[in-house]
Design a protein around this nucleic acid. Structure first.
Lengths: 233, 233
DNA sequence: TATTGTAGCGCACGGTGTACGCATACTGCG
DNA sequence: CGCAGTATGCGTACACCGTGCGCTACAATA
């Protein structure tokens, strides 16, 4: 039968389809993080991601329900980078809290796109890494000696501050990245209000350091405020 | 000539185009806010917005450079809703700061979509309302009596905290909105770890109030921490 | 070997932002 | 009043997006 023969011929021409190494969810998520880090959130499309993995766009849907779920997975992935000290006791609380806060800030600055996603993704039904980090941080604050029912609020306070500050830093850095300049050039060209023509803004010299100092200032104030509750109790 | 006649006939059939009231940037922005409040960020498209204004999608581009610029305008618009007390002096600082903070939180909860946008829009080149509010808030902190060079950082600290906390609240509320339930039902169905079967989570009774209390707790701690710098100086 | 499940993919659909050029309406001038 | 110049709205088109559907080729099982 010609039809059969034709299909045989076609299957001859169609190369025997070398064994494609299988896609996996881990692979997809890892490549998505790379793409996001390189090109930002608006550059993430299923087609581009598929191409990077030598796969068709729709193949990804065998391992991921949809794009939103992929983003949840990706957020959980980077939460896995956090370093939260083990809880010890009241003496070390402030140090451990500060380390956690710095680690969270560093993660957001390494992956500025998380900032643009945290507002849309509720952290409620997120994955194992988010859960684990939350528990570890809760343990740190639990061991600190806050009045009962306050440890959760204390933790939220610090996390909110860090996320708020780091988000605005990340947005700023994304803006710079899109402008093509580096941070110092960008800051130097920024119009600063109320300033004489001759004098330069001292902050323009090392903007990254200034950012970190601003972050640290706020963090210390927040920890000061929480510390009052500690000693009072 | 038939061609001319045809065009005349066509212009007869073509209704003389009743005077369309002009589109204006203000109108577009106001309608965009309404659409965003009603249906969230992912529902905002130029076509839908155009339809709501009885206009074609591309007509909007006469008044707005592109969608990103529209979003910047819209963000600036809602910043105009903030109520920031006039700066008076050290005695009133804490009250004024708290009022500003509450006003900012309320604005974000009224317009939960801003939370999902703050991470992408740098607040650097934003519009008159953002500028004005920033200046008013800076004045409040400037009159408080912080050591020189600290007022800006103090302000950033509080704003970061409020934005971080309100963003997570907004994400939570958006999630609920998508689920169709109301907040109380949603909270009741939420799995809460480590809890006996008989006892109910007391927070489930009035989740909105619990959220506000959590916000206030953190705000008071932050203001406490800043207050230390005040009295020390 | 025959069967059954599954990973990958081509195609298609409905949606998006927005560039372009035309037609109409308004404005300011003679 | 008449006309030129400009501003405004819009239809069309393009490239891209997320993703449902059904086909094919292979892996594992019976």
């Amino acid at each position: 039968m010609p039809a059969e023969q034709k299909s045989e011929i076609a299957s001859v021409w169609t190369r025997p389809r070398r064994q494609r190494e299988q896609l996996s969810r881990e692979q997809i998520v890892a490549e998505a993080v790379r793409l996001l880090d390189a090109d930002g959130i608006e550059a993430l499309s299923m087609r581009k991601l598929g191409t990077r993995l030598d796969a068709g766009a729709t193949s990804l849907y065998r391992h991921v329900a949809n794009k939103d779920e992929l983003i949840e997975l990706v957020v959980d992935e980077v939460y896995g980078e956090l370093e939260v000290p083990a809880a010890t006791g009241p003496a070390d609380w402030r140090d451990a809290a500060a380390r956690s806060a710095y680690s969270l800030r560093a993660m957001i600055l390494r992956h500025p796109w998380v900032a643009s996603v945290l507002g849309q993704v509720g952290l409620i039904h997120l994955g194992p890494n988010v859960t684990r980090m939350s528990e570890r941080m809760a343990a740190v604050y639990g061991a600190a000696g806050f009045p009962a029912d306050e440890t959760e609020r204390a933790l939220s306070t610090v996390i909110s501050y860090v996320i708020g500050m780091a988000t605005s830093e990340a947005a700023y850095l994304s803006l710079i990245a899109r402008s093509g300049k580096n941070e110092q050039e960008f800051a130097a060209d920024l119009p600063v209000p109320q300033q004489g023509p001759g004098q330069r803004d001292p902050r323009a010299e090392d903007p990254a350091k200034t950012r970190e100092e601003t972050f640290d200032y706020g963090l210390q104030r927040v920890l000061d405020g929480l510390g009052v509750r500690l000693t009072a109790g």
